[in-house]
Simulated scan of single mutants.
Amino acid sequence: MTYAEKILEYYASVSIPQQLPDSVEVLYPFDREYVSAILETFYHKYFNDNHSRTFLIGINPGRFGGGSTGIPFTDPIRLKEELNIENNFDPKQELSSRFIYQMIHAIGGPEIFYKNFYFTSVSPLGFVKDGKNLNYYDIPALQECLEDYIVEEMKKQIEFGAKDTAFSLGMGKNIAYLKKLNAKHKLFKEIIPLPHPRWIMQYRLKRLNEFIQEYYNQLSRTIE
C-alpha cells in the first residue's frame, strides 16, 4: 500500500473517543462523502509513494481547518489557493493555516514539503464546547480520559512510515504532554518543540519572518 492508501484507510475508520466530559463534542468530518473525496484528491496528489516522513504534531484540529476539511492545518482557502483543490466548503480561514502555508513555501512548496512531512495532532479529532474550539488539555478530565485513545491512534499513524524525530507544534502544554507520553510509550526517539502557528499569528505577527526562518532551520535538516 502507498502512504496515501494507508492514510485514507485510517481516516475512513478513525475511532471516536468515548465517555467525554459533559458538553464536549467531537469534530468528525470523515463520515461525509464530500470530505472523503477531498481527502482522496489531496493524499493521492502528495503522498502517492512509500517514503517515510517526519511527523509534525499539533494539538487537535480546529473548526475552520482540519475539523472542516479533514486535512490538518489546511483551511478551505488554502485548499483552493495553495493546493489547487476546488471545494465547496465555507471559505473561512484559520490563522494556523495561513502560517503553515507561508512556511511550506519557504521549505520549497507543497510537493517538496509533503514528500517529507506528515501533519497530525495529539488527538486526530478536534473538540468543541459551547461552539468554540477546545484543546485536549483545556479540561483536565478530557486529557485524562483521552490518553489511551491518543496513544493508540498515534501508533496506528506511525505505522504509515515515521522517522525517529518528530516535532511538536506548540512549546508549552503540547510539548510537555508529548514528552510525558513519549517517555512512557517510546513513540519517537526525539520530539523537538516549535512555536505554535496560531500563537505566532495572534501574538507575534510582527516577527513572522523570524518564525518562518526558525521552522525552516529546524525542518530542512530532516529533508533528504
Results as ranks from 00 to 15, higher is better:
residue 3 Y to T: 08
residue 25 E to F: 11
residue 26 V to M: 03
residue 27 L to I: 11
residue 31 D to I: 09
residue 33 E to I: 11
residue 40 E to Q: 15
residue 40 E to N: 15
residue 40 E to T: 14
residue 42 F to T: 06
residue 43 Y to N: 04
residue 45 K to E: 10
residue 45 K to H: 12
residue 45 K to F: 03
residue 46 Y to P: 05
residue 48 N to C: 13
residue 49 D to Q: 13
residue 50 N to R: 13
residue 53 R to D: 09
residue 56 L to T: 07
residue 58 G to Q: 02
residue 60 N to M: 02
residue 61 P to Y: 02
residue 74 T to L: 11
residue 74 T to A: 09
residue 91 P to K: 07
residue 92 K to G: 09
residue 96 S to E: 00
residue 100 I to Q: 01
residue 101 Y to V: 03
residue 101 Y to G: 01
residue 111 E to D: 14
residue 112 I to K: 15
residue 113 F to M: 06
residue 114 Y to N: 02
residue 115 K to Y: 13
residue 117 F to W: 08
residue 117 F to Y: 12
residue 120 T to A: 02
residue 120 T to G: 00
residue 121 S to T: 01
residue 123 S to D: 04
residue 123 S to M: 08
residue 124 P to Y: 05
residue 127 F to I: 12
residue 127 F to E: 06
residue 132 K to L: 13
residue 132 K to Q: 13
residue 133 N to V: 01
residue 137 Y to D: 14
residue 138 D to Y: 02
residue 143 Q to V: 05
residue 144 E to V: 14
residue 154 M to T: 14
residue 157 Q to G: 00
residue 158 I to E: 06
residue 170 G to D: 02
residue 171 M to Y: 12
residue 176 A to E: 10
residue 180 K to S: 15
residue 182 N to I: 06
residue 183 A to P: 03
residue 183 A to N: 11
residue 183 A to S: 12
residue 184 K to G: 08
residue 184 K to M: 10
residue 190 E to Y: 10
residue 191 I to A: 06
residue 194 L to P: 05
residue 194 L to D: 06
residue 195 P to D: 05
residue 195 P to S: 06
residue 195 P to E: 06
residue 195 P to F: 01
residue 200 I to D: 00
residue 201 M to I: 14
residue 208 L to V: 09
residue 214 E to Q: 11
residue 216 Y to I: 02
residue 216 Y to V: 05
residue 218 Q to K: 15
residue 218 Q to D: 11
residue 220 S to T: 12
residue 221 R to V: 10
residue 222 T to E: 06
